[in-house]
Write a protein that binds this DNA or RNA. Sequence first.
DNA 1: TATATAACTTAGGTAAACCTAAAAATAATT
DNA 2: AATTATTTTTAGGTTTACCTAAGTTATATA
Lengths: 158, 158
Amino acid sequence: MRKKTIEEYVEVIFAIQKIKKIAHTNDVALSLEVNPASVTEMFGKLTDEGYTYYEKYNGVTLTDKGRGMAIILKKRHETLKHFFEIIGIDEKIADDDACKIEHNVHPETVDKLRKFVEYAKKENSCNRWLDHFKYFDKTGEFIICTPDEDLDCPIHKK
Amino acid sequence: MRKKTIEEYVEVIFAIQKIKKIAHTNDVALSLEVNPASVTEMFGKLTDEGYTYYEKYNGVTLTDKGRGMAIILKKRHETLKHFFEIIGIDEKIADDDACKIEHNVHPETVDKLRKFVEYAKKENSCNRWLDHFKYFDKTGEFIICTPDEDLDCPIHKK
DNA sequence: TATATAACTTAGGTAAACCTAAAAATAATT
DNA sequence: AATTATTTTTAGGTTTACCTAAGTTATATA
């Protein structure tokens, strides 16, 4: 499997700490599907770079720096996942893709997608467009629907 | 800089071949910002795995397999870039992000985004939603615009 | 055509994250 | 408390894409 970045270690440590206070070597190894020996090694690196405190034989906890990074990553992940779900991607795949790209995409892009999600979820925005997109996605057919011809719209006519 | 995948090598070879018939070591080295010696090494791997023909001291050309991959990657890249541009990301960043995530994202996701782009570009689809999103993105303000109240819409009223 | 220059390859090494196997520390059980 | 079981670490290797430096081949110029 692919090599894990510092960000991925920080993420799983954060997740583990939600349940356990301290993230132990084995917890992280299981989460990342990596050998415990590799985790020990990474704990060293993580601590050198200021993301964790490491107490030998007793796992790590995130520093403020580490926690800060984790929170940003988590938000980023949720934004991306949410976005994918809005356009109709299955939850599992949405989550998976969010995982993979959250480490690569520019902040500007995430910001824009965050706004997109925010907007799409707003009840009183004109959501016909999204509905029509989903209809197109499912049927392959375009709904002819211009502002002046609302009556012809098969989804929104009442 | 980050390690290059086979896919990235295939992409730049494809791009070079559009101009030159044969992609030489140096061309690829310059494109990927990598040492020529590394490229020679990769040419070996690429050829072992059936993506290129390699003639010593005279560069590589893509096989059908390699070209097939390149074409898929190119389409994927364009879809992603296009999508980013539609939601308002600058061309440069859109291109950059497309580059980075085109290797990671599920095919289902790319398909969905392709449809999204296709739909958004269709003239006779109801594009108010996208317009309203952009307005929101710019101003932070929601446009109250329901199907029954078109007259209140500051963008679409005539 | 000889020679200088440029391009490419080979040989040998590095770094980073991974691994296995064995040793050490900690925790659990009798 | 002693022994067994589990967890963690250490030591030493592997892999992969990268590098530098030196040697080789191809190309361009005198």
